[in-house]
Amino acid sequence: MLRVVGAVLATTGIVVLTTLAAASTLRAQFCAFAGPYNIYSFSVSGNRTYVLVSLVELEVMAAEGFRYFYRPRLTTEDFLHCYDPLYNRLVTINLTLQWGKAYLFKLSDRALIEPMLHSISTLSLDKVVEVLEKRALAKAELSGSQVYTDIYGFRVHAYEASLEVEPGVYYAATILAGEVDQNCTHPLLGSTRLEGSVCKVVSPTLAQIARCLLISALGILLLVYDLRLEGEPLPRWISLALGALRRAGGRAGLLRRRRSTS
């Protein structure tokens, strides 16, 4: 089993490193890829990466035809358990926003949906800034505007915000985006809003490269340990690598000795 774990770790580390390196060189393609999901996008200005965050919530619920169009995409159990679009029964929506405020709505008919949407829209951008700062994910220089979008005859309030993040915090920003979003967003919604923004995948950071190498090294160590344990010869590439390391170590030792004697 050690050998399985070792081999998987060694391979995985190398694959991740290679993929990250390749991704950073292919960022233009990813940008195009990211386009349809433009709720979040990235723009580059000088050395800064900007993450555009939008809050668009609950618009889907009121939509006729939503059942057909959205069902396969909806996976949040909370939402599904509370909503029955087919019969429009009295149901409870328990939508928990990540910064700790829960909204409970009772829906009995379409007329009740609109006030609910308004109440959602009372979320202020200040809240977003607060979350960002609390989590220290980015320097929260936030500017944004409230926009209105018509979706199937309903006016939905949405936020569009641009926030500046440090280079290399792509994933932190993704987390933030995940937290701000609430699973019910429309993949096509506002697709035109971000047109023209430049997307960027940040190159792997030194920490990421180090982690890849560390994981691969751990895997190789486990492999070597297991092979030694079972008295089996090491694969040629491992022997060569170990030999090279030994030689390098020897050379470094020699240099140190020379320095200390001189």
């Binding site: 050998r3 399985v4 081999a7 998987v8 391979t11 995985t12 694959v15 991740v16 993929t19 990250l20 991704a23 393609q29 990813f30 890829f33 990211a34 999901y37 433009n38 709720i39 979040y40 996008s41 995409r73 996976t75 949040t76 792509y170 994933y171 993704t174 987390i175 985006a177 995940g178 937290e179 979003d181 609430q182 699973n183 967003t185 993949p187 995948v201």
Partner: peptide, 28 residues
């Protein structure tokens, strides 16, 4: 183990590519 290396090649490749290339509605 050698067949399972296929998993170690395919899964991280897909995961890494998807994470860096798509911006999903939510992380969940």
């Amino acid at each position: 183990a050698k067949w399972n290396l296929g998993l170690a090649l395919a899964v991280p490749l897909v995961n890494t590519l998807m994470v860096v290339s798509t911006i999903p509605p939510s992380l969940g």
